[in-house]
């Protein structure tokens, strides 16, 4: 009997341990995780690991885990994360566990300044996060300083606006009282509904160059590809919606977008290395698949989920 391999998978709010076989595939491990977590909307998620060169990499589901260059540790380390984002949160996210995992991941992205968020929106989002954690505000329960140990706002907002910690807490407390009567799950959904409109929400950025060698950003998201100038990740200058794209491919560092209109010329940019183009293509294919799926009738499974969620 081959020696089992110890694996640790961290989700946004749990740590799971498994012993897998050397021939266990990525999908088999992924299925064990979603079964344990009770998640059925699996199409948004993936398992991310650090490869032997130190790069974050998504686990391929159709290959054995042992055949992928996972950094050698005992146990092997994986993060269970959302890899694709819905076009519209309230429309698409069905299960509460899905909404919670997205809420925790998006909140982390905002608080760590990975996703830019303006101050007033950050305060509003912070108050929904407080409602999601504490429930209704109560003078008896929530004594002064109840937010002191909470991570409420992105560091950039704290740095840019010279308010004291107490003043920030006061502002959030005012909003917290406003949310009275809102269920924790609804507060998470409100958080996501606001966050999804932030410019950088749900966008995968890649460093690219044009033929002239100018540094630019490529953004890949649920609706297509965008090009940004290097000093402004918020404002897309050129867009390629999935509906306008006939084909995408790459050849080493060169990436080619072919338009639906065959008379229009191909669009070419350059990534720093082949591995980046592989990741771009992977994200394009996954996002495009979900884009097409949303425009078809619900599968039986999704219909069942929606019915159960309603119950």
């Amino acid at each position: 009997m081959p020696k089992p391999v110890n694996v640790r998978v961290t989700t946004m709010d749990a740590e799971l341990e498994f012993a897998i076989q050397p021939n266990t595939t990525g999908k088999q491990l992924f299925d064990q995780v979603v079964k344990t977590v009770g998640l059925r909307e699996v199409w948004y998620f993936g398992l991310q690991y650090t490869d032997t060169k130190g790069f974050p990499t998504w686990l391929k589901l159709d290959k054995k885990v042992s055949a992928q260059e996972v950094r050698k540790e005992n146990p092997l380390q994986f993060k269970f994360r959302a890899k694709f984002f819905p076009e519209d949160v309230p429309e698409e996210l069905i299960q509460e566990i899905t909404q919670k995992l997205f809420f925790l991941q998006v909140k982390e992205g905002i608080l760590s300044d990975e996703v830019y968020c303006p101050p007033e929106t950050a305060v509003l989002l912070g108050s929904y996060a407080v409602q999601a954690k504490f429930g209704d505000y109560s003078k008896d329960v929530h004594k002064s300083g109840y937010l002191t140990t909470e991570r409420l706002l992105p560091q950039r907002v704290l740095d840019q606006h010279k308010l004291s910690r107490e003043q920030w807490e006061e502002r959030i407390e005012v909003w917290h009282t406003e949310h009275r009567g809102m269920l924790k799950e609804d507060a998470m959904l409100e958080y996501l509904k606001i966050a999804q409109d932030l410019e950088m929400y749900g966008i995968n950025y890649f460093d690219i160059k044009n033929k002239k060698g100018t540094d630019l950003w490529l953004g890949v998201d649920s609706l297509g590809l965008n090009i940004y100038e290097h000093d402004d990740k918020l404002t897309p200058k050129i867009g390629f919606p999935w509906s306008e794209i006939r084909n995408i491919s790459f050849n080493d560092k060169k990436f080619i977008i072919k338009p639906i209109d065959k008379k229009a010329p191909d669009f070419v940019f350059y990534a720093p290395r082949l591995r980046i183009n592989k990741r771009i293509l992977q994200l394009c294919m996954g996002n495009h698949e979900l884009y097409m799926r949303r425009r078809k009738p619900d599968t039986i499974e999704v219909q069942q989920m929606k019915a159960q969620a309603k119950e």
Binding site: L124, L198, N210, L234, P236, K237, A264
Partner: peptide
């Protein structure tokens, strides 16, 4: 009002509509 401000950003997430030759022109001139 804060919610409206946040929602107003939704439009910023897509680039302006333009035909592909215009996209080419802008991209190569960056």
């Amino acid at each position: 009002e804060a919610k409206e401000k946040a929602r107003a950003k939704r439009a910023n997430k897509r680039a302006p509509q333009m035909d592909w030759s215009k996209k080419h022109e802008i991209f190569s001139n960056f």
